[in-house]
Amino acid sequence: MLPMMQRELIDKKKWVTKDELLDYFAVSQCTPGIISVNTATFVGSKVGGFWGSAFATFGVITPSLIIILGIAAFLWRFMDIEAVRYAFNGIRIAVAGLVIAAVAGLIKQSVKGWLGISIALIVFICSLVFDLSPILFVLAAALVGIAIFLAKRKAGPKDV
């Protein structure tokens, strides 16, 4: 979605500069939620304050709402048809493959160093073995990160 945002928001509407958009994108990755929605909220806020962000956010989710509700309302009536079931057997294979590829990309991008690898592995195994809420893992990982930050600051204030 970033290339499209660049074209529309920087080149055509001139609402934001390239640096601003990249900043928004970077911060959107360090805040919860869906990155492209967060970026839209950011741009809206810059252009039109609170209401700007409200309308931009609503705008970015509206196509999803309409398309998905449309599909959802009709699709399940066809799920009993043999051909549709067969097609979905194949589609689920494709989705499993796509998600594995995406996870491989995420590992390359976000799992760095022995700390990152061990956190990813521990969370992977624990969430397969134990029936725990994903929230617990996210909070625990955040606490580890904060503890490391505080320990580093205590060790050498000049490095931070």
């Binding site: 996870v103 995420l106 590992i107 976000s110 799992v111 760095k112 700390l115 990152g116 690898i117 956190i119 990813a120 592995l121 521990i122 969370v123 992977f124 969430s127 994903p134 893992f137 996210v138 625990a140 990982a141 955040a142 580890v144 990160g145 490391i148």
Partner: peptide, 10 residues
């Protein structure tokens, strides 16, 4: 730094 690898594990 630590939440991202955890998210990947999840």
């Amino acid at each position: 730094e630590t939440v991202r690898p955890a998210a990947v594990g999840l």
